[in-house]
Design a binder for these strands. Structure first.
Lengths: 350, 350
DNA sequence: ACAGGCGGGACAATTCATGTCCCTGGTGTG
DNA sequence: CACACCAGGGACATGAATTGTCCCGCCTGT
């Protein structure tokens, strides 16, 4: 046991609710940080606290010089930011997130696992946090003149909309991993690639074709020189950042026809990632030709980063991890708990 | 810095109220341990707590299995003893500062001593903390329609620039304690008085005269009606907030002539405060007429607050404390350690 | 055997925490 | 430049928790 665990255990004997209060205040401070500027009532709602209780806490944080409160709302101070940064690793140890990380990392042979507090299913702000953590990871692995392929989805959108860099990434390229998927424009891979490039001063290319194609259309399009050109860039990506979805949810969202959905069901499709469907063991179900990144391209990619959270996605995430091509997983507490629950099951049966 | 130290610092920022409770419970447990077996009322008396409050705590410690309570009194349990042993180093780190405070407070008969962590000499942000603590003290002692006289200096500037109030102090006055001292404008008493007044919605008056004057100039100026008026306000101050400086450093900064510096040296001047020089025993050296606050005015002031930090100022602070007119001292760990080192010397010689 | 001091019960007084609503004012938007 | 909206802060009733004070019956050390 770490020195910190014993330290906290000692204190908890004398102050049993120490961790409760510490967590509460930390989460408030963190939420304010994530929100840039936020009002009391909005904050209370997003943290599921009553207004008055939150107010007592923010008043306290103000007197501690960690929050700035002004007419337009509250904002974190420099000291508050410093405190948050210092506290992050401690928080993870205290609340067992680093244990979850390590356990998942080992089981699936990943390079790195990051678990952020919360559950995207129930707490909307958790997705922001997921996005922020995703940004940090992406920055860590990106190198000069890299090509980064990204998929779409709401979680990836959180990454795109929060991505920043200290210096413009002039030589880097952001490209969509796949074509259009019939979802809302805001979450299209094309949109996100362009957003990320604009926010970081990098270049981007777009892929203006639908993702799922018949054989004939595929052949025709691949003969177009400008399509070929961008496809070549995409398939040379060194980094892939992708979300993970539930197979049925994704299939419906893509408005594929009923018979296809039935086929997926019959084949036991559980999860979806970078346009492919996987069963619960991580085996690919239903390959089909695509203009974008193919499985064989992904196998050749150096860094594959998965970003997905929410307890409802635990199974899907586990399935993709079993597929085994990912290097980094960024998820949240809700999903991570679901995943380790599955690990417990596995071990019990063994 | 150790992980323990950083955890403690975070807790001090985030849970200062809980740490007070922690200390209380620790001290109760320790007292029980030292007493072998002790009754509730006796214990309450020796810890200067009321019976009922102590009882709430001992009930709690009992449920935590740290105390054994029987008909003959209470006794520490094995678990309690273990906790106490493990907690000792932790306690020292957590509350080392409060012990310093209490020691200094008692020795110099002060109302209150505040020691902030750090050393202004080496850690620049410590001065900010000093200023913030100074603000809290000032707010605590200020009352309706008070006149507050302040001196200049970089430390006091930190107070001025961070001072806030919940409601505007319409009836209060901030005034400079002394006239111009030939330092940078930013640290002039005049500047600080006006800053503080503006930040708190209070009134202020300025003293537009040099501090050190010849007899003749003094007499002439004091006959000016507008000078007389403001001087009367200044001399009626109920609160004085002042910094403390090293005598030689201050003398040089004020560009007094060489012969004066030699005279100061010969008289053993060590410290400077509110325009006067003191030797290491706190005796005043070299009085001279001033338009601003005179020593006799300070003797009549109700609340005198000293704010100064940095290990290099320990001796100067101690000298001013020996002078004995201060009620409150706000300092930092660096200076406080130097001061108690001197106390240790004193005790060794006695 | 007994007296003093023990823990624990009781309870009124008071403080404190909390949920809720309102008000004024600043900010961003059109 | 005007407006609408949402911000923080004030106010307050209510209910919970804390606290000071007293008492009682019992154990225990002498």
């Amino acid at each position: 046991m770490g020195i910190m665990q014993s330290l906290i255990e000692i204190q908890q004997k004398l102050l049993p609710d120490l961790l409760v209060v510490l967590k509460k205040r930390y989460l408030i401070l963190r939420q304010v940080m994530l929100s840039d500027m936020i009002g009391r009532r909005t904050l209370a709602a997003s943290l599921e606290m009553t207004e008055r209780v939150l107010r007592a806490e923010t008043d306290f944080l103000k007197t501690q010089g960690l929050l700035h409160i002004e007419a337009a709302g509250m904002r974190i101070t420099e000291a508050g930011q410093r405190l948050l940064d210092e506290m992050e690793p401690l928080y993870k140890q205290m609340f067992g997130l680093s244990d979850l990380e390590e356990r998942i990392r080992k089981r699936y042979g990943l390079k790195q696992v990051i678990v952020v507090p919360g559950d995207s299913d129930s707490l909307p702000h958790t997705k922001r946090e997921l996005g922020l953590a995703g940004c940090a990871v992406l920055r860590k692995y990106m190198e000069k003149d890299d090509v980064v392929a990204i998929t779409g989805g709401t979680t990836l959108a959180q990454v795109a909309n929060q991505l920043t860099t200290q210096t413009p990434l002039k030589g880097n390229w952001f490209v969509p991993a796949r074509g259009g998927l019939g979802e809302s424009l805001d979450y299209q891979a094309n949109t996100l690639a362009s957003t990320m490039a604009k926010r970081t001063g990098a270049q981007y290319r777009l892929l203006h074709v639908p993702d799922h194609l018949g054989e004939e259309a595929y052949t025709t399009l691949m003969q177009e020189p400008n399509v070929r050109e961008i496809v070549e860039v995409i398939r040379s990506a060194r980094i892939v950042v992708h979300g993970i979805g539930d197979a049925m949810v994704m299939a419906r969202r893509r408005r594929v026809d009923g018979s296809f959905i039935e086929a997926l069901k019959a084949e036991g499709a559980h999860a979806e990632a970078f346009g492919y469907y996987f069963d619960r063991n991580g085996a690919v179900v239903h390959r089909m030709p695509t203009i974008g990144l193919r499985l064989e391209d992904i196998m050749a990619t150096e860094v594959v980063i998965a970003i997905a959270g929410g307890s409802s996605k635990a199974e899907a995430i586990a399935a993709i991890m079993r597929f085994g091509r990912d290097d980094v997983l960024v998820t949240d507490e809700g999903a991570a708990l679901g995943i380790v629950a599955q690990l417990d099951e596995e071990e019990k049966q063994a």
